[in-house]
């Protein structure tokens, strides 16, 4: 349940950030959630991963679907893969970076908690 919630939250925040700033700023929402919200490593990684995976796949898919389709077809052919795989690869790239960013944020949070407990 929390994973679904956080997935949506990551996607929403990343959508906002990416609409305004360069692509790599997508790491900011997962890092922040990692620092302040996530409670488990699994949660940190998978929510962030899924959030960006879905955001990128849906956003790319919509642009592809509302176009003539030529761009994705040519790119997929350049990489030698079907369009679906290209779409999936797009999501995985965004997701992987977000997942690691979420995890980094979470581990940073844990170092602070350790300190407080001490």
């Amino acid at each position: 349940m929390r994973v679904i919630l956080f997935t949506g939250l990551v996607a929403l925040l990343a959508f906002g950030v990416q609409s305004l700033f360069p692509w790599w700023t997508l790491i900011i929402p997962p890092v922040l959630l990692g620092l302040f919200v996530y409670r488990k490593g699994n949660e940190a990684f998978f929510s962030s991963f899924l959030g960006l995976l879905l955001l990128w796949i849906i956003h790319a898919g919509l642009q592809h679907a509302t176009s003539s389709g030529d761009m994705a077809a040519r790119m997929a052919s350049t990489f030698g893969i079907p369009i679906v795989v290209l779409l999936l690869a797009t999501g995985v790239v965004g997701g992987l970076l977000a997942g690691l960013a979420g995890l980094s944020g979470f581990y940073l949070q844990r170092t602070q908690q350790k300190k407080r407990r001490n």
Binding site: W23, W56, H59, G69, G94
Partner: peptide
């Protein structure tokens, strides 16, 4: 690959 700024944006 970024759908906000990469090649997906060039689909017309």
């Amino acid at each position: 690959l970024d759908p906000f700024g990469g090649f997906w944006q060039n689909a017309e």
